[in-house]
Nucleic acid binder design. Structure first.
Lengths: 242, 242
DNA sequence: CGTAACCTTGAGTAATGTCAAGACTGGTGG
DNA sequence: CCACCAGTCTTGACATTACTCAAGGTTACG
């Protein structure tokens, strides 16, 4: 299984150049493969995480629980993502990561990761960039939740998911939709599920999306993006070309 | 001026261990010092940033402008922060950074920074951790704006500012308050200035804070934190001890 | 002393949340 | 194959939070 981590390598290579030694080191990382059912935890808030998980198939999300029991989804993870750099390097998990669908993942010991980062500067740099992009996405979410109304917010999330899925598929993934419930969408947008439902209906009525059960299809990307005020720059997909 | 970058070194040492060579390399970075008046831009959205700025004195904030002209403040920066890793490493600035007060900063060429990161793994690791913490703060802001009401949000921001100021002062800084206008507070919380004003009055009425002109004093930290559902873990202040 | 920000306050409005009931869906066991 | 069940979605009526607009007060500063 020397190519299990291939997905991670492909992802990092989108933004960094590696020489053969770097690539070999990355693919040579020790790992164990694990599968998880929907809803199960990859990491639980408050735990110490000695492993970093690389998502191979399926989706996951990060969430925080606030004082009154409310849940906020703070990030989505797609195949190829190293989903637990944050919690494992910062040692104490300040939030949980949960499987959205059934997933397979590779668990890499933190020490092994730190070792190759210390030995191969290009790999360290690649992970750093990856972390910077995660931060950039978080900032866009702050702007989305803080300054856009419910309809724009929802449209923006749909646009982001579409772009990220497209990238995953271009890299050899195989997934056409991100099967979130309306409650989960609400928790990602700071809205109630009821209101998400109403906004979805609006988008559908205007012909921007179509819906089958738990599947949302974008019918008019251009108009949806314009409703959402969506510009993909914050995803930093094309760093190599700059 | 060999100790201009001292503030950055002290900050990074809060979370990373360096040997003397690392420290010398960091302090030996080339830089030029610059001062800026309140409201002036450190980086402007859309520009290419070839320098990274280290904030030496004063405060700054990052902001995004959304489609309808609304502004969202997405992060605050205090002395010691490397305020433009994101924009300079990701090459195209997807948001602006603006001075909140009069500031002094050191501008470090991006290439010099990348050079020492590639040469000194401990420094690379320290910057990576710093970026991870920025991400962690952004995620807490998402939860704050998405799932807490106006009063809790405001209280939470006040708690965060207090803690961060305390840390800066402990490291040799000299600032007792963060002089944001109510409009700026609103832009950081996804609220209107009018509503911020009303919430401030509530906190004041209940004896949690006191106000003089543009200065907010926390009277009852414990109760304010309890109102805010504030736990400082997400700031990751004590990584070395874990 | 005048001016430009900024803050304060009230009245009315719009967006979103709450509650609750009924309908649909997919899976499970009989 | 059917019936049931839990989870999800849909819908309406109503409540509430936060926004908007606008006017007057305050502060800092020249």
């Amino acid at each position: 299984m020397t190519d299990t981590l291939q997905r991670l390598l492909v992802k990092l290579k989108r933004r960094s150049r590696f020489d053969p030694a770097d690539e070999a080191a990355l693919l040579g990382l020790p790992f164990t493969v694990k599968t998880l059912e929907p809803g199960h935890y990859l990491v639980r808030q408050g735990e110490r995480a000695d492993f970093t998980c690389v998502l191979l198939e399926g989706f996951a999300y990060r969430q925080k629980i606030v004082g009154d029991g409310g849940r906020q989804i703070i990030a989505l993870q797609v195949p190829g993502d190293a989903v637990d750099l944050q919690n494992s390097l910062l040692k104490i998990a300040d939030h949980s990561v949960q499987a959205l669908t059934a997933i397979t993942m590779a668990r890499v010991p933190r020490v092994a990761l730190l070792d190759i980062a210390a030995t191969y500067p290009a790999i360290a740099h690649a992970f750093w960039l990856d972390t910077l992009v995660d931060g950039s996405i978080a900032w866009e979410w702050i702007a989305n939740i803080g300054r856009r109304d419910a309809l724009m917010r929802l449209a923006h999330l749909l646009c982001e998911c579409a772009v990220r899925l497209e990238v995953v598929n271009a890299e050899g993934g195989d997934c056409d939709t991100l099967p979130m419930t309306q409650e989960q969408i609400g928790d990602a947008l700071g809205l109630t599920p009821v209101h998400v439902n109403r906004m979805l209906k609006l988008l559908e009525r205007d012909g921007l999306i179509a819906r089958r059960t738990r599947v949302i299809v974008i019918l008019d990307t251009a108009r949806l993006r314009s409703v959402a005020d969506f510009q993909s720059a914050y995803l930093h997909l094309n760093l190599l070309d700059d």
